[in-house]
Amino acid sequence: MENTNNGAPLIQVRNLKKAFGELNVLDGVSIDIKKGERVVVIGPSGSGKSTFLRCLNCLESATGGEIIFQGTNLLDPKVNINLHRQHMGMVFQQFNLFNNKSVIENIMLAPMTIYGKKAKQEGKSKKEFEAECRENAISLLRRIGLEDKADVYPSTLSGGQKQRVAIARALAMNPEVMLFDEPTSALDPEMVGEVLELMKELAQEGMTMVVVTHEMGFAREVADRVLFMCDGVIAEEAEPEKFFTSPENPRLRQFLQSIL
């Protein structure tokens, strides 16, 4: 894949460590993620792959190392993490749509809350700005094929629909990178396809993506690079072709055998 960026990686992770008490969940993870790159992370449960992803936007506070995102070390306590999270979309296994908000409000809330003040300074009335956010939300809903669900509440949606709305909600902030934490693991099998399809579309549009998943087909098809995490480290890192056909790490070989 071609990377159009000036060469500097979008995210640089250096020797990232995370310990829960005595347990080292991440034991020195280092990786560069370039703009436009699709990185898929796989590994057995308890390998630290979800923790790694959650550390990237500081939902888990790492205990050591560096995460340099757009030139800023996110682990510096002086950094206002909210500003950086605005450029990192996150999609959760359990969707986590806001239960007290309708579908369209779910999508509009963050842009309205975060950019409301700025819009006011630019001389936009609250109404104008809301209309703008609504328009943007509707076009996102149209894109995920759920325009007719704009005014319903999340509890009435199917799992697949929820996850598509959750992706749209993250996209509403125009993120530089999207983090997916096992986005299809909580879905009924027949709904996995619609979510993966949307993710593939995003990939085709050049979105930078870091995806923790068990969907090997997706990894093979979409990833530029596949990482195998095991015992808190990246045990293998390769292009999907090489990763799946000629894995070097014995643990990876064993893992692939057990799931394929």
């Binding site: 999270r85 959760f92 359990q94 809330l109 902030m173």
Partner: peptide, 13 residues
């Protein structure tokens, strides 16, 4: 649910 806070924070709020 804890996920509600996480979702809000992950969006930058």
């Amino acid at each position: 649910d804890d996920g509600q806070m996480e979702a809000g924070r992950s969006l930058g709020m």
